[in-house]
Design a protein around this nucleic acid. Structure first.
Length: 419
DNA sequence: TCTGGGGTCCTAGGACCC
DNA sequence: TCTGGGGTCCTAGGACCC
């Protein structure tokens, strides 16, 4: 059996942990640059606030309904996520951290009563972290996700649901809308509904051949999992990323090269950090910039530039150099740039790098410098030490007007208690 | 004024090899 | 009548996830 533990309205719940005045009040969290609604408390959902809506479109509505609005605070969410995962680790020998707010637990062979165990997991996470979670249990990952849905949506289940036994599974699948199935997105829902498939139960009645042909092996796997045949394994060790991207929208549109250079250098530096964190090097780098596509009356421009690196690297200095070269190759005057980004790809383990005969970079020196850089920044906080080209970010930094304190990761933002 | 960010996997088709 | 067979690698596009 698999359990999937999913934090309820995770970002909104994080905001509540150290600010209990938010309990009972509608809370929403905005995407980067304070753009769209990306998390909603139950009260906010009840008000009809939809996922992904641009915040400015419903600004008045938010005020009228006394909705608490927050900028994304990933320092806080990341830390609380780590705490939740630490608790979950105690409940299984096999934990797969699937996303910032979700994990699979392999319960195979544990001598426990499943419902009781689920209740215990839920209670422990809530007590130790302040985060409410839902626990779904089933014989396959897809069925566990289905169970999680029932745990979350039906109040009488109190946040837990165990899907076991053919009769119970059958009954659940008959009531389960096809577009709620994990792995069935918008396009496949549309396709399936067009041939009269409305529920998960309808779906598993289709011939395998049809599913394989129209939905590839991925769709067929989902079908098998719904039928109770497990074909998605636990992934215990997070695989190294094959592509790493750092990109941001700017708080204000940028017209000049200099702030773009700062931004792109900063994104390249962040990519380098992410590479070093997973002990990889990248063999290619791409920079992209574009204007605001929503502004139909403004001149539009969108370009990217790919550099093949002579020797795969994770050096901040080297990646910045190539990133700036790429930026300068595509930058044109006369546009209002809204967003830029750096991607690194062609990623390989750092101990398998193919050198070059005429390499003029002193790689040992770069490695020593970045090691020191990482050590200092890990101890004193991100960007305590950085490359001068990265600048201050004053001009282009994203909007974060409603940022809560990073209660658990910054000394000067630690919670204050009034007597 | 204002519209997020970061990933994965699969397939088809083209180019190329012997 | 009849136009081989068997591969690899790469890329773009499309689907999905959180």
């Amino acid at each position: 059996m698999f359990a999937v533990v999913d934090c309820n309205n995770f970002y909104a719940s994080c905001e509540r942990v150290f600010n209990p005045a938010l309990n009972g009040r509608p809370v929403v969290v905005l995407s980067n640059n304070d753009g769209c609604i990306i998390a909603r408390s139950e009260e906010a959902k009840a008000l009809g606030i939809k996922m992904g809506v641009p915040a400015f479109q419903i600004a008045d509505f938010l005020v009228q309904n006394n909705v608490a609005v927050y900028s994304s605070n990933y320092a806080l969410y990341g830390d609380l996520s780590r705490r939740v995962m630490n608790v979950l680790e105690r409940f299984t020998p096999e934990l797969e951290i699937y996303s910032i707010d979700e994990a699979f637990l392999n319960l195979a062979g544990l001598p426990v009563q499943l419902e009781e165990y689920a209740r215990k997991i839920r209670a422990t996470v809530l007590k130790n972290t302040g985060i409410p979670v839902s626990v779904g249990i089933g014989p396959t990952k897809v069925l566990a996700k289905t169970a999680n849905h029932y745990a979350k949506k039906a109040p009488e289940n109190h946040g837990i649901y165990v899907l076991d036994g053919p009769a119970k599974i059958d009954e659940a699948l008959k009531l389960f809308a096809i577009d709620e199935v994990w792995g069935i997105g918008r396009q496949y829902s549309k396709l399936l509904k067009s041939i009269g498939v409305e529920t998960a139960w309808d779906f598993i009645r289709l011939p395998d051949g049809w599913v394989r042909k129209r939905m590839t092996v991925v769709g067929l796997r989902v079908k098998k999992e719904l039928e109770g045949i497990s074909c998605m394994e636990m992934e215990l060790i997070p695989a190294a990323k094959k592509v790493i991207c750092t990109s941001r929208s700017f708080g204000e549109p940028q017209t000049e090269l200099e702030p773009l250079r700062e931004a792109v250098a900063t994104f390249a530096a962040r990519c380098a950090e992410k590479l070093r964190c997973q002990h990889s090097c990248a063999g290619m780098l791409m920079v992209f910039i574009h204007t605001n596509g929503f502004k139909a009356n403004e001149p539009q421009y969108e370009r990217n530039f790919v550099c093949k690196l002579p020797v795969p690297t994770n050096s901040t200095m080297e990646l910045i150099r190539y990133a700036l070269f790429a930026l300068e190759a595509i930058y044109r005057k006369g546009y209002r740039y809204k967003k830029a980004g750096v991607l690194v790809l062609d990623i390989a383990p750092e101990d398998r790098v193919q050198g070059a005969l005429f390499d003029r970079v002193d790689r040992a020196k770069h490695a020593a410098v970045t090691k020191t850089l990482d050590a200092i920044n890990s101890k004193y906080g991100r960007d305590t030490l950085k490359i001068a080209t990265q600048g201050s970010g004053k001009k282009w930094k994203m909007r974060q007007e409603k940022l809560s304190p990073s209660y658990t990761t910054k000394w000067n933002e630690i919670i204050t208690v009034r007597v």
